[in-house]
Nucleic acid binder design. Structure first.
Lengths: 238, 238
DNA sequence: ATATAATGTTTTGTATACAAAGAACATGGA
DNA sequence: TCCATGTTCTTTGTATACAAAACATTATAT
């Protein structure tokens, strides 16, 4: 908290209320798995840990609750939301529809400069993938930036917001499945195919690839849940 | 608030925190247009009006903020969000994709009983439409229930949640465009066609109709904004 | 008369206080 | 030993207090 508070005081023009700092911080911790599903979020504990009072903690929790990352049990406080396999598949299903919409719009609206930017991001991503000891979290960031360029190309802010939110829901698992080197190579190939389709303004082809892309994520994540997830789920029964 | 507090105390099993009562109440007022776009939401005023302290008001506002119905200006408090035509069209575009997904899934999953229920809801809706002096708000409720049956038929809870949220964004305008009797008749016909397609399990046809359905809403709402909206927007420059 | 400085008021942001509901634990009885 | 019951402790839900920022208003100087 000290560091964030510092930033906050150093940049008075981008003032950010404590609740927002707390919100972003808790969210990051949940998405990174530092706060595990089922874990209790106790206000006083968090307040002490972050060096603020309960008020901003509570307000941050309200937003996390609305976002679905936190579940409230009446009179028993906040818990990090569990994600069942069913919910994850539900999210992916919705995401697939919206990714198709996004790539369709992007295909019709992206400028040549946008596509260039996309290729730049992709090269950065591919470079990281080649490194054997690449940090999966960092890899995730680059993948994110690639997709952000496409999202921006849609010109539909609500679509961007929802897609970002859906992607967040899977962040926790993405780190897991990005450990698989085979998955990484597939990602690079798919990104490349997407760029080529966008360059040719071939909407049908772009839609085809992005659908494959999501289906692969579907498989990868479910595979990760099958193997890695089993013990973890049992280990955290709450 | 007295009434709500009363309910809350009468039904101790469905205990609801004050913040939740406030949240639902403010949301309803925003969606119904009782709180107009741009209007300031001042904490003390609301607290006095609703007979609670600032704390639950603030927590309710956090959720409204996250939902996009309220916009925060740092150190200047909460305002009811304006909706631009662009945003409205963005919402509709996303909704169209997801309604197509929903009807596709529903077509494959709904039981015959579900379809019967759908027809029941539709008959209730149609009956109301025939009444000349039907209350647009009540009509909206029936339309909502019709679509709820379809949404439930998808078996995808995340999809349901997002669709409900998107629909909410347009609630404010729906009341306007439901005043048009021609629109009402069209709605009935479309609902009927949807049911027929679902009965035949004709996914392609169902998708076709639901797309038309959304496109019509698109036109109706934009028409309402062209005529009715002009003065209202100017009248509320805030 | 206009611009500007000073002052007071309102409103937000944050912290703290207090009551009540639940959970945990210990004590006593079968 | 196991269960029931009462007591304590923790934690939430709500209210209030206080400081600082924004805003309005008045007074002052040019």
């Amino acid at each position: 908290m000290t560091a964030d508070n510092h930033d906050r005081l150093l940049n008075p023009e981008e003032y950010m209320p404590l609740r927002e700092v707390v919100f972003l911080r808790l969210r990051r911790q949940i998405l990174r798995g530092e706060l595990k599903p089922g874990e209790r979020l106790m206000e006083i504990g968090l307040a002490n840990r972050l060096g603020v009072s309960r008020t901003p903690i509570r307000e941050a929790i309200r937003k996390l609750e609305h976002e679905g990352l936190v579940v409230m049990i009446p009179r028993r406080g906040a818990h990090v939301a569990e994600i069942t396999r069913q919910e994850l598949n539900d999210v992916l299903e919705v995401r697939k529809s919206l990714e198709v919409l996004a790539i369709t719009k992007a295909c019709g609206r992206m400028t040549d400069e946008d596509v260039d930017e996309l290729r730049t991001e992709e090269q950065a991503f591919a470079a990281r993938v080649r490194e054997q000891d690449a940090d999966p979290a960092a890899l995730g960031q680059f993948d994110e930036r690639f997709h952000d360029v496409i999202y921006r190309g849609t010109g539909n802010r609500r679509l961007i917001q929802i897609l970002n939110n859906l992607r967040e829901q899977m962040y926790r698992f993405r780190v897991e499945y990005l450990k698989d080197t085979e998955v990484r190579e597939t990602l690079v190939k798919e990104h490349d195919a997407i760029i080529k389709a966008l360059e040719k303004r071939d909407t049908a082809e772009a839609v085809r690839i992005i659908s494959l892309h999501i289906d692969n994520q579907f498989r990868s994540i479910n595979r990760a849940l099958d193997t890695d997830g089993e013990e973890a789920e049992d280990g955290q029964p709450q």
